[in-house]
């Protein structure tokens, strides 16, 4: 499972990074979204990748991370998702404003001269 998750994070990061460096604003925002998915998966994996564990605590079990999933990374992911969702929405607004004001979707607000 580690391999699958690691590959997933790697592929998402790679594609996100490539898109982030592209000249069109739409590609940039897609890149940022992919990167944020990768980061969310990464945060999630820091709690340890194990299956079939109790979400918090089973009755009578000792409260140690061997007996239940680490809840903190899940809380962090949730916060990160909310924040990246909000900032992506905000970026989208700026992107549209930029398209309207400059008449191009190039990230520099003007086409490169050929």
């Amino acid at each position: 499972m580690e391999l699958v998750v690691a590959l997933g994070i790697g592929v998402l990061t790679g594609s996100g990074m490539w898109l982030l460096l592209r000249p069109r604003t739409f590609q940039v925002i897609m890149g940022l979204s992919l990167l944020s998915y990768a980061v969310n998966l990464f945060i999630f994996s820091t709690g340890g990748l194990r299956t079939g564990l109790a979400p918090v605590l089973e009755p009578g079990a000792v409260g140690s991370l061997a007996n239940h999933a680490d809840p903190l990374p899940q809380a962090l992911v949730l916060t990160a998702i909310v924040i990246s969702f909000a900032t992506t929405a905000l970026f989208l607004v700026v992107l549209i404003a930029s398209r309207g004001l400059t008449g191009t979707d190039h990230v520099d607000g003007r086409e490169r001269e050929r």
Partner: peptide
């Protein structure tokens, strides 16, 4: 808007790095 676009994109990327560092 032109400057803001760069500013936001760079800071969003920086925030993702922040998250990676914190979770590590």
């Amino acid at each position: 808007v032109r400057a803001g676009l760069h500013y936001i994109a760079i800071n969003l990327a920086a925030s993702l790095l922040f998250l990676v560092g914190v979770s590590m």
